[in-house]
Amino acid sequence: MKSGQGAKTAGSAAAPLTTDDGAPVVVRRSARRTRTVAAFWENGSAVVAIPARFTAAQEAEWVHRMVAKLQRQGERRAAAGRRRPATDAALAAHAAHLSAQYLGGRAVPTSVRWVSNQNSRWGSATPSEGTIRLSDKLRPMPQWVIDYVLLHELAHLLVAAHNAAFWKLLEAYPETQRAKAFLEGVSYATGRGMADPDAD
């Protein structure tokens, strides 16, 4: 962990901290948190949650310790995989990469974009227009889940129905069943009635 570019840490006037590979380090103090310290990746930043009562010295010690732990465990790569496609342009580029990797480059959408008004589906495609839309509720999910939904919609550009030929296209992606189960679990837990892409 080093000082330099990145987000400022709470309760510290020192230069902002970054991880060894340049990711911002954000410290969150919480009055609810009395003894425990947690660390996780969020939107490309290493977040360290500490009790509000910690001194500056305790903060420095725990931030260093927890960021080192995150980096040792490789949680950033596991949680995010490749850098998350934040913009529509990045999402379209990522779709092209997935199409080339798993569908032989045959699925060529005319547009791929994030949308905020899609509350009943994780993703949708309009084969006649070649357009794909992903719900922005997918953004915080693991990259392998986002990739599944994107591949699902790419496959619909080749086969509109959920038939044997459609599912054959998704066999090449190793996380298909795991991602389907993940999304079903999220839908059940949130109770929002959001459907698996199968319903599109």
Rank of each mutant, 00 (worst) to 15 (best):
E184R: 14
A90Q: 14
P197G: 10
R32T: 07
K168P: 08
S128L: 10
G6A: 10
T19H: 10
A31L: 06
N43G: 08
A79Y: 12
G11D: 05
V67Q: 12
A90N: 04
S12P: 02
A93G: 11
S30G: 06
T55L: 04
G44K: 04
A39V: 00
H156K: 15
V149F: 06
P127R: 11
S135F: 05
L183K: 03
L151V: 09
A172I: 12
D196F: 08
L91I: 02
W167D: 14
D21R: 05
G22V: 03
D196C: 10
D88E: 05
A172F: 14
A89S: 07
L98W: 02
K2W: 13
E153M: 06
R178D: 01
A199F: 12
A15G: 00
A107M: 03
V159P: 15
A92S: 11
I146L: 15
K2M: 13
A60M: 04
T110V: 06
R32E: 05
I132P: 02
H97V: 08
T126A: 14
V149N: 14
S124I: 06
R113S: 10
V25K: 03
I146E: 07
A181V: 12
A79D: 11
V145D: 02
G104S: 03
E42I: 00
A23W: 00
R53D: 11
D200H: 07
P197Y: 06
D198M: 10
A39R: 01
G185Y: 07
R76Q: 14
A46H: 06
D147S: 03
A95W: 08
H94A: 03
N163D: 15
T190D: 06
A13M: 02
V149Q: 13
G185D: 08
S12E: 11
F182I: 10
A195H: 10
A78E: 13
A60T: 07
P197C: 09
E129S: 13
F166I: 10
N117Q: 11
A46E: 07
L98N: 07
H156T: 15
S30R: 11
V63H: 06
L157E: 06
A15P: 00
A160R: 15
A93F: 02
M141I: 08
H152M: 08
D196V: 08
D88I: 11
T131W: 09
L169P: 05
V37I: 05
A86P: 00
F54N: 04
R28G: 04
V108E: 05
A155L: 05
A13R: 03
Q118W: 10
L151H: 14
Y148E: 01
P24L: 02
G191K: 00
V27W: 00
S128R: 14
H97L: 13
Q73V: 11
R84W: 00
A79H: 13
A46W: 09
E175F: 01
V186R: 07
